[in-house]
Write a protein that binds this DNA or RNA. Sequence first.
DNA 1: CACGCAATTGTTAGCGTTCACATTCAACTC
DNA 2: GAGTTGAATGTGAACGCTAACAATTGCGTG
Lengths: 338, 338
Amino acid sequence: MASSTERRLPVMADVAREAGVSHQTVSRVLNDHPNVRPDTRARVEAAISRLGYRRNLVARALVTKRSRTLGVVSFDTTLYGPASMMYGIEQAARTAGYFVSIVSLKSLDAANVRDAIDYLAEQGVDGVVVIAPQRSAGRALESLPQGLPAVAVEGSHTTGVPEVCIDQVEGARLATRHLLDLGHETVWHVSGPADWMESEGRIEGWRSVLEEAGRPVPEPLAGDWSPRAGYEAGKSLAAMRGVTAVFAANDQMALGVLRALTEKGVRVPEQISIVGFDDIPESEFFSPPLTTVRQDFDVVGRHSIELLLRQIDAGLSAYERLVVPPSLVVRSSTARVR
Amino acid sequence: MASSTERRLPVMADVAREAGVSHQTVSRVLNDHPNVRPDTRARVEAAISRLGYRRNLVARALVTKRSRTLGVVSFDTTLYGPASMMYGIEQAARTAGYFVSIVSLKSLDAANVRDAIDYLAEQGVDGVVVIAPQRSAGRALESLPQGLPAVAVEGSHTTGVPEVCIDQVEGARLATRHLLDLGHETVWHVSGPADWMESEGRIEGWRSVLEEAGRPVPEPLAGDWSPRAGYEAGKSLAAMRGVTAVFAANDQMALGVLRALTEKGVRVPEQISIVGFDDIPESEFFSPPLTTVRQDFDVVGRHSIELLLRQIDAGLSAYERLVVPPSLVVRSSTARVR
DNA sequence: CACGCAATTGTTAGCGTTCACATTCAACTC
DNA sequence: GAGTTGAATGTGAACGCTAACAATTGCGTG
């Protein structure tokens, strides 16, 4: 019943019959095999378009054992950083002819990440890139499903899995040195949450510059990346004396700090200079426009696919680490101390 | 050669042999078929974990003709709105046991969208959700691959494809009425780019409230969602006389407006009130904190999956339209006119 | 105790591709 | 003109799973 609507989609055999060739010849045409006579090719192509045939990639994947799908495991893709990396990854993957299957986690504990990877492996992805900015997530990479190529982004540097990351330490050094160069005696720091690779790298970079310059190193104020955390930190900072320069571990927290200072009547950059991290699109239009550290997330995404494909094609996973340098963007939230 | 590393992954037959049953019984255990004796089940499960067996979903998809994968086509997932919807979609899909394969487009013209959908269809997705906020994208939905279930998000309302969207008109009405209620004579509008559904809805809502109240309707200033466009519009607005209230079509442009006004020494909200749209996480910490219209992207994502799964399960696609109401969030960028 | 019935398990045949291996045919070579 | 080559095509068998049906078992029933 309902024969006309339920008519099944044409398969290779239908095309073969229509074109008067064997199914294998159809397959050859589809896969650009060289040894097909031009007129045969034309006949097959005509049959394909006449029937509206589309090849079934699932069947193909079954026999080739390649799904041409890559998995991506990420933390909260609502955030600018992960979202941008995801974007770069997807673009690069599609350009290389791969599909991208995503899993977006609410929490990056090892069990969750492991589950996500297993889930993708079961689906038959050819490889995974794990955006693993937390130490806990890194642990999940120590026990990958047998032979699954993987790349860690912002990973933990200890798993043996190839990784690509942004040089957090250098970014923080750039920010801190910039403030010192402007004549500030020292720099306060509003950090990201503990356990995050980025937090630790930024703290390290900030601390190292201060120590090298022989400056006092104030206790960092711990945040959680949210503007609200920055706001709270900003209120504390405003109540302290002697604060002239603040380095916030991301732009959203810098915004919160800015807001708190504005509320308390502290002028930026006249009384306090602020530097952020990330260069989100909004930063340029904060009041004042934010000096920040630019991270090229797109490049990170592209590199990670590059590394992954190299593993897939070569069948081996030599450890490799790609570090992307950040850059300082000076705007109006920092000024020479008076 | 290299026999130990290249040993192929175990398949169902291996498990069957190990457990002393038929491969079909293994399949039944895996699929929670009720008629399996508990001790048989236990034996099979033991064999599975002993061998580290993982089922091959590709092979399963080939025979069931269901990949349990959903496709999502979206525009620039770097933006807060699309990223949030994507997140909601992915969460909902995974909860329902589906994988999510994404395609993130740089431009939403009909050809691009059609290609993306075809691409996903070839991969064998069970359905697609298309985040199609531009009219041009909507056109691609008029010719879907044969029998492919689809849902449009922020779609064009004319394609017959089930859709879920946020009530843009109502959101704009809320914003405009709020400003009128504060005693403003009329409200200027910085709009999104033409051809976008959201732009048009927001213009319509804004205009309708002004007209109903018998107020003058100023020419909208055309933007492109970016903070920079808002900044340019803000400079124009600052140069005009009689402007006391501005409704920007999104928060980023509102930020730009805010910045321009601040630069020109115009105080917000004392001299000019501003309302945005989206309620991005940063808005609360702008200077001043932004009054805006909240859109629940998460809910939109969840609803779209709901609609899609209903189509897949029922095998039919009765037109259905789900409208999610927005809400006004009053903060400090708006004030009673003096 | 033969019978029917339900629960449990096994057997066989695809799903739509690609791969490995024929086979055919024309064009060279000596 | 027999033999050799290579291009062009065809044939059959996987790939790893589920669906459909067949077979076996155990149990209650008249």
